[in-house]
């Protein structure tokens, strides 16, 4: 199958990038999108050109490394998957595919389709943890946790930190990411102790890093490869207000 690829090429963080068009006929419907890019890269290398740089590691939808903006969708037109799970069978023979990196001030482009997502780490470092030292934990059964709360916590904690929410949001807001982390801990008794400091610190860091503000459009939820709900954002807001009031 043949595709016309318009891919953002940018040598490094400081250089000015541009779209480069590749007419590529080495695709096939059973390839994944990233395998198609691998194949394109092979042809580029053989011609002595630089291959398209993109992040990917586990290629099974869990590490969160991959992620690119494909034809107006983060991770492509199929809902609830990462880019590595996107199959070429969703594209038509002869189709034009525009591939762009995540666009956000807080996610500067490193090269081609690779962006720097360290901002997420900084938010997590600000308070995304429970302060307990190795060796000081009580028996795992010392604190029972309500099953539905534990299940909710799990649904929040499956975030893979891929940045899709930021990429999808028209405001480049990181609220879904932050709320998933805050929610996970807020739902656990052991996480409640430092809940107030946590939510304040994480929000403050999020703001400082230049993410946009949430306007409840729901684009993040619609595109999240792990289907994380904006109910988490509402919970984050509650947590924040109660932290501010007390």
């Amino acid at each position: 199958m043949k595709v016309k690829l318009k891919i953002w090429r940018q040598k490094n963080a400081v250089s000015k990038g541009k779209f480069v068009t590749y007419d590529f006929d080495g695709a096939s419907p059973e390839m994944s999108f990233l395998e198609m890019l691998d194949a394109l890269n092979t042809t580029l290398i053989q011609k002595g050109d630089n291959p398209v740089a993109f992040d990917s590691d586990c290629r099974e939808g869990i590490c969160g490394a991959c992620g690119m903006y494909i034809n107006g969708y983060p991770n492509g037109p199929v809902k609830g998957i990462t880019t590595c799970h996107l199959s070429m069978r969703y594209f038509k023979d002869g189709q034009t595919i525009v591939v762009e990196p995540w666009r956000a001030k807080a996610f500067p482009v490193v090269k081609d389709l690779i962006v720097d997502r360290m901002a997420f780490d900084k938010i997590q470092t600000a308070g995304g943890f429970i302060s307990t030292n190795v060796g000081s934990a009580p028996d795992a059964h010392a604190i029972p946790v309500n099953k539905s709360k534990a299940d909710d916590a799990f649904d929040s904690s499956i975030c893979i930190g891929c940045g899709t929410c930021v990429a999808a949001c028209k405001n480049a807001s990181a609220m879904l990411f932050v709320s998933a982390k805050v929610s996970q801990y807020a739902l656990f008794p052991q996480g409640k102790i430092e809940a107030k400091e946590r939510v304040k610190a994480m929000i403050q860091t999020m703001d400082e890093l230049g993410f946009g503000n949430c306007t409840n459009t729901g684009a993040c939820e619609a595109q999240c490869p792990k289907n994380i709900s904006i109910i988490n954002i509402a919970r984050l807001n509650r947590e924040y207000f109660s932290a501010k009031i007390n």
């Binding site: 779209f19 762009e100 001030k105 729901g218």
Partner: peptide, 21 residues
């Protein structure tokens, strides 16, 4: 919010969200 995305996407966002939002 505008500042948070200094470089816009070339392709218009296709994500299905509330038109009015």
């Amino acid at each position: 919010n505008w500042i948070a995305r200094p470089v816009q996407y070339k392709q218009m966002a296709q994500t299905q969200i509330s038109f009015f939002s």
